[in-house]
Every structure is written in structure tokens, then in C-alpha cells.
């Protein structure tokens, strides 16, 4: 029983990581007033870029760099459409999701001829587990030992990056001048403009930050958990991150706990498949799959607190007409 709990916690952390990265990515963008439903596409593009470059160079770090570059490019496209051209942000996000889904499969097939997948990564093309000091020695200490060895130790470096990004994001948003302006530009861009700060440039910096984090999220899927890119390998995780962002009410620390909850539901669903639960009976896998979305809708309905988005989210900023 105890072993099961430890394994579940381990799985939860692994599954939550890409969600958390994408969720924080969306947080930067939406806090600045740019709604981003293209998280999914950016993750997918990054997963492909990372998988392809890591295969060619056999270097995971170059792969990560490529993944981030692809994602930032897509972010800039989103910025160009929704900040510079004041286009509809939802439409732009939908376009990015389509483009990423089509281009990754098409280019994957053209370059590698494996049905859109990238070939299995060579040694060095994947991130490996980081074993913390003395993990093996303390394994036999009851309770703390397995927790240290399985749950804390033995993850890929990007997992630690994701969880360190939480306090960092909190600090940037709530303790730096950049963070204050970023939040202000998402609440009242006209006021920020009056203070002599460029709304456009602030929002571009926010979508670039979003692109970087999405890039890490996508790369994690293809070159840390997986061994190469697979067609549509994000499978809706970008949208789940968006749900988590709303569930967390656009706050970094809540985002972490929400992503852990959603990750736990996923891990529990996989583990409880075909298992009879006392008094309830067998719970279908689909219940666990739908639960994060149902919970988010319930939250949006106002039954568990109220999710209020940044005030200017989704509205293009237009200076006074000339």
C-alpha cells in the first residue's frame, strides 16, 4: 500500500510537469492581457523541434534550444497577429494549433519518413534522470527513505526546472517592476500607456516568456519522457494547462497545486483501471479523463470561489484614434 502511494506520487510529478510548464506559460501571456489558446500548438511545435534536433545532433540541450526556438517563433506569430495587428486572439490561437498539428506531421514525414514521427533518440539526445546524493543509501529508511529516493530524486532536470519556475514566476510577477507592469498591462493598458510604458513591447515580452516555457514543456514530452516526437503527442495537454490556469485563478502557486491535482487524477485513472473500489465499484477511465475539465467548469460556475480573469484579457489595445 505504501509502495503504491510512493509510485503514485512519482507518477503524479512526472505527468504534472508539462502541464505546470504550459500553465505558467499561459499565466505570463494572460496576465499581460493576451489570451492564449495556442498553448497546445506551441507545445506540439516545440516537441517536434526538440525531437528532430536532438536526433540529428545527439544533444539534448541543443534539442531543448530548438524546441524553445520553435515555440517562441509561434508565440511571436501570435503576438504579431493579436498585438500588432489587433486581430482576434482566440482565432489566432486556433490558427496556431492547426498550423502546428499540420506542419509537424508533414515535415516529420518529409524529413524522417516514419509516418510523421521522429526516429528514436540516440544516446545523449535524451535527458537522463538526476539521482540525488545518497538516494540508494537512504532507500531502506522507512517512509522518508523511499520518498527521498523515488519522489524527490530520480527525475529529469526539466522536472526540477518546472517546479523551480513556480517561485521564480511568483517573484517576477509580484516582486519586480517588470511583473508589476506586466500585471498592469493586463488590467488597465491605458493607464500603463499614460505612464509612458509601451503596451506593445510589454505584451511582446510576455508572449516571449510564454513561448520559452511552452518550449520547455513540449521538449519535455519528446526528449525527456519520450524518446522522440510522435504525431499529436501533446494530446490536449495544452488545453488541460489552460483549464488549470483558470482553476488556479491565474496565480503561480495555485497553478502548481492545480497541475499536481490534474496530474494525480491522470495517474490515478491509469492505476485504477479495472480495479474494484470498495462501495463504488469499478470507475471507468473516462471519468478520470473528464474530471479536470468538469472541475474547471464547476469552478467557472462559481461553486468553488470565483475565477476572475485579468480585466483586459482578450481585448486588443488601441491607442486614441488619430
Amino acid at each position: 500500500m505504501f509502495e503504491t502511494i510512493i509510485l503514485m506520487m512519482d507518477a503524479t510529478i512526472r505527468v504534472s510537469t508539462p502541464l505546470l510548464l504550459a500553465c505558467l506559460a499561459g499565466l505570463y501571456s494572460e496576465r499581460s492581457g493576451v489570451v492564449d489558446i495556442g498553448l497546445e500548438g506551441k507545445m506540439l511545435g516545440a516537441a517536434f523541434g526538440a525531437g528532430a534536433v536532438a536526433y540529428i545532433t545527439a544533444n539534448a540541450w541543443l534539442g531543448l534550444l530548438a524546441g524553445i526556438s520553435v515555440s517562441v517563433l509561434l508565440s511571436l506569430l501570435h503576438g504579431f497577429a493579436s498585438i500588432s495587428n489587433r486581430g482576434n486572439q482566440i482565432v489566432s490561437g486556433v490558427a496556431i494549433n492547426f498550423l502546428a498539428a499540420g506542419l509537424t506531421a508533414l515535415l516529420g514525414q518529409t524529413w524522417f519518413r516514419q509516418g510523421g514521427r521522429t526516429p528514436s533518440l540516440p544516446d545523449g539526445g535524451r535527458f537522463t534522470e538526476i539521482v540525488w546524493p545518497f538516494a540508494e543509501q537512504v532507500r531502506n529508511i522507512p517512509i522518508i527513505g523511499p520518498f527521498y529516493a523515488e519522489v524527490l530524486s530520480g527525475h529529469k532536470i526539466l522536472v526540477y526546472v518546472a517546479f523551480l519556475a513556480v517561485p521564480l514566476t511568483w517573484w517576477i510577477l509580484f516582486r519586480t517592476r517588470f511583473g508589476l507592469r506586466l500585471r498592469a498591462v493586463g488590467e488597465n493598458p491605458a493607464a500603463v500607456d499614460t505612464a509612458g510604458i509601451s503596451v506593445v513591447w510589454m505584451r511582446y515580452r510576455a508572449v516571449i516568456a510564454c513561448g520559452i516555457l511552452c518550449g520547455v514543456a513540449g521538449s519535455y514530452l519528446s526528449i525527456a519522457v519520450g524518446s522522440g516526437f510522435g504525431v499529436n503527442m501533446t494530446a490536449g495537454q495544452g488545453f488541460m494547462a489552460l483549464a488549470a490556469l483558470i482553476f488556479a485563478k491565474w496565480k503561480p502557486v495555485s497553478a502548481m497545486f492545480t497541475c499536481l491535482l490534474f496530474g494525480f487524477l491522470d495517474a490515478a485513472g491509469t492505476r485504477l483501471q479495472g480495479v474494484e473500489i470498495w462501495l463504488i465499484g469499478e470507475v471507468p477511465l473516462q471519468v478520470f479523463q473528464a474530471l479536470p475539465y468538469v472541475l474547471t467548469v464547476v469552478l467557472l460556475a462559481g461553486f468553488i470561489g470565483k475565477a476572475i480573469p485579468p480585466k483586459a484579457a482578450g481585448i486588443p489595445y488601441l491607442k486614441e484614434r488619430s
Binding site: 497577429a81 490558427a95 496556431i96 502546428a100 498539428a101
Partner: peptide, 10 residues
């Protein structure tokens, strides 16, 4: 995707 981008967002 390109049609949505150019006819919609842009």
C-alpha cells in the same frame, strides 16, 4: 491553419 490565420487573425 493558414486560412484561419490570414482570413481571421490577420
Amino acid at each position: 491553419g493558414l486560412v484561419i490565420l490570414f482570413a481571421g487573425a490577420l
